[in-house]
C-alpha cells in the first residue's frame, strides 16, 4: 500500500510539474514535449486508480495522435511565437479570475466528498474477476456492436468527405509507379561512357 502512495505522489508531482512547464517553457517544441510527459504521468495515475483502459486510451490517442499532431503543427508552421506572446500579461488578470473560479469549484467538489461519504461508495461498474478493458469489450462487441460499427461508418464518411472536398488531381505531378520502376531494364537506366583521363563528359 505504501508503494502505491509513493507512486501516486511521484506521478502527481510529475504531472503538475510538467503542466507548469508546458505553459512556462519559452520554446513551443519544448512545451509540446512537456505536454507528452504530462499525458504519460496522467496515464500512470489512471493505472493506479485501476482504470487501465483509460490509461491506454490516453497514451494511444493523446500521446500517439494529438500531441504528435501538435508537434507537427508547431514545427511545420512558421508562427512567430514572440509576437503571439506579446501582451500576454494583459490577459493575466482574466486568467487569475478563471483560476479562482476553478479553485472554488474544486473546493465544492472536495467539500461534498468530505461531507457526504455516501457518494464515495460509488458502485464499481466493472464486474468482479475481469479487467475493465475486458468488461468494455464484452459490451462493446455485443450490445453496442451496431453503434460501434456505425461510428466507424461516420469516420468513413468524414474521410470520403474530406477527399471529395479537397483532393484535386494536378497535371504534371510526378507520381511513383512501382510497376514502371520494377520493369525498367538496364539498357534504359545505365549508360556506359568511356571517360578519358583528364577530361570530363
Amino acid at each position: 500500500m505504501i508503494l502505491a502512495t509513493v507512486a501516486f505522489y511521484v506521478f502527481a508531482t510529475g504531472l503538475i510539474a510538467a503542466a507548469l512547464l508546458v505553459v512556462s517553457a519559452r520554446n513551443p517544441v519544448h512545451s509540446v514535449l512537456y505536454l507528452i510527459l504530462a499525458f504519460f504521468n496522467a496515464a500512470a495515475l489512471f493505472v493506479l486508480l485501476g482504470a487501465e483502459f483509460l490509461a491506454m486510451v490516453l497514451v494511444v490517442v493523446y500521446v500517439g495522435a494529438v500531441a504528435v499532431l501538435f508537434l507537427f503543427v508547431v514545427m511545420m508552421l512558421d508562427i512567430d511565437f514572440a509576437e503571439l506572446r506579446q501582451g500576454f500579461m494583459q490577459y493575466a488578470p482574466m486568467g487569475v479570475i478563471i483560476a479562482i473560479v476553478f479553485l472554488f469549484e474544486l473546493a465544492a467538489v472536495g467539500g461534498a466528498w468530505v461531507l457526504t461519504p455516501a457518494i464515495t461508495a460509488v458502485e464499481n461498474p466493472t464486474p468482479a474477476g475481469i479487467t475493465n478493458t475486458e468488461a468494455l469489450g464484452h459490451i462493446l462487441y455485443t450490445k453496442y456492436v451496431l453503434v460501434f460499427q456505425a461510428a466507424g461508418m461516420v469516420l468513413l464518411v468524414a474521410m470520403i468527405g474530406a477527399i471529395v472536398l479537397t483532393l484535386r488531381h494536378r497535371e504534371g505531378v510526378k507520381r511513383q509507379s512501382a510497376s514502371v520502376q520494377i520493369g525498367r531494364k538496364r539498357s534504359e537506366a545505365v549508360e556506359l561512357r568511356k571517360v578519358r583521363p583528364g577530361e570530363g563528359l
Binding site: 453503434v147 461510428a151 461516420v154 464518411v157 468524414a158 470520403i160 468527405g161 472536398l165
Partner: peptide, 19 residues
C-alpha cells in the same frame, strides 16, 4: 445512442453533399 449515431452519419454525408 443509436439515435445520435444514426443522425450524425446522415448529417455528415449531407453536409458534404451540400458543398
Amino acid at each position: 445512442i443509436v439515435l445520435y449515431v444514426g443522425l450524425e452519419l446522415q448529417s455528415l454525408a449531407l453536409y458534404v453533399l451540400a458543398s
